[in-house]
C-alpha cells in the first residue's frame, strides 16, 4: 500500500495543498514541502508548470508563467526532488498537463517519479479512456497511482469507469469552473457532493477547485474525505512568503 492509500486509511478530513514548482522562487520547491510538512498537511500536490494550462484560473496561470520564466523545467524539478524522502513522509503527487510529460518521455517520467518517491499523478488533460487504452500499463509498472477528475456533469456511468481506473482518490471538481478560490458553495454544489457521496465509490473523494478558507474546507469535508487547496495558498505565499505557510494552514484547519 502506498502513502496515499495509507493516509486515507488513517485520517479523515484530509487537507491537500497544491503549489506550482518554481514559484515564487525557482528554488522554493523543497522549502515549501518542508513548511507543509511542519504544518502537518496530509498530502502535497506539486504542479509541473505548463505554458498553456487550460483548466486553470488566473492565479495558477500566473504562477505557472512566473515559474517558467524563473527557469523551471521537468529535469530541474526531479533534481530538486531527489532528497524529497529525506525530509518528508507525506504523500506527494505531481499534477501536470500531458504535453510536457509526453515530451519528457512517459516511461522516463514515471521512472524518475518512482526514484524520487512520488506517489501518484494527476494529468488533467489525459482522459480516462485514452489512459486506459494507451498508457495504463506504463504507470502501473512504476506503481504510480493515477487520480482522475469528476465534475458536476460527469455521468454516473463515467464516474464508475473513473472509479475503476483511479487508485488513491477521486478528484471531485466542485463546480463548472476552472481552478480558483471562491468564498462559499451554493446549494447545487452541496447537492452534487451528496449525490456523489451516495454512490459509495471504492476510492475516497477529495474536493478541489474553489476551496479557499475554513468555511469552504469544512463544507467540503462534510461531504467527502477532504479537500485540495491551490490558488488560495499560492496567493498567500505570494503575498506573505513561503515561511508563513504554517499561518495559512492554521487559518484553514484550526
Amino acid at each position: 500500500m502506498n502513502r496515499i492509500n495509507k493516509v486515507f486509511n488513517k485520517k479523515k478530513n484530509l487537507l491537500s495543498i497544491y503549489f506550482t514548482a518554481g514559484f515564487p522562487g525557482i528554488n522554493d520547491t523543497l522549502k515549501i514541502i518542508k513548511e507543509l510538512d511542519k504544518s502537518q498537511v496530509d498530502m502535497i500536490e506539486i504542479g509541473l508548470p505548463f505554458s498553456d494550462p487550460l483548466a486553470d484560473g488566473p492565479t495558477i496561470q500566473k504562477s505557472s508563467e512566473k515559474a517558467l520564466s524563473n527557469g523551471m523545467t521537468t529535469n530541474l524539478l526531479f533534481d530538486q526532488l531527489k532528497d524529497l524522502r529525506k525530509i518528508s513522509d507525506i504523500p506527494v503527487v505531481i499534477m501536470g498537463y500531458f504535453n510536457p510529460i509526453l515530451q519528457y518521455g512517459i516511461e522516463k517520467f514515471c521512472s524518475n517519479c518512482k526514484d524520487v518517491g512520488i506517489d501518484g499523478l494527476i494529468i488533467p488533460d489525459l482522459p480516462a479512456d485514452i489512459f486506459k487504452k494507451n498508457y495504463k500499463i506504463i504507470f502501473e509498472k512504476y506503481k504510480l497511482n493515477m487520480m482522475f477528475l469528476i465534475t458536476p456533469q460527469t455521468s454516473n456511468e463515467r464516474i464508475n469507469l473513473i472509479d475503476d481506473l483511479s487508485k488513491g482518490f477521486i478528484y471531485m471538481v466542485s463546480s463548472y469552473s476552472v481552478t480558483g478560490a471562491k468564498d462559499s458553495f451554493d446549494k447545487y454544489q452541496i447537492e452534487y457532493f451528496k449525490r456523489i457521496k451516495k454512490l459509495n465509490l471504492s476510492n475516497p473523494l477529495l474536493i478541489g477547485f474553489g476551496i479557499s478558507n475554513k468555511k469552504t474546507f469544512q463544507a467540503a469535508c462534510q461531504n467527502s474525505n477532504g479537500a485540495i487547496i491551490g490558488s488560495a495558498y499560492i496567493k498567500y505565499i505570494e503575498n506573505h512568503g513561503v515561511s508563513k505557510t504554517q499561518d495559512f494552514i492554521k487559518l484553514i484547519k484550526d
Partner: peptide, 11 residues
C-alpha cells in the same frame, strides 16, 4: 488527432 481534454469538457 483525438480528444485530449480535461474531464470538465468531456460532456
Amino acid at each position: 488527432g483525438g480528444a485530449f481534454i480535461p474531464e470538465m469538457l468531456f460532456p
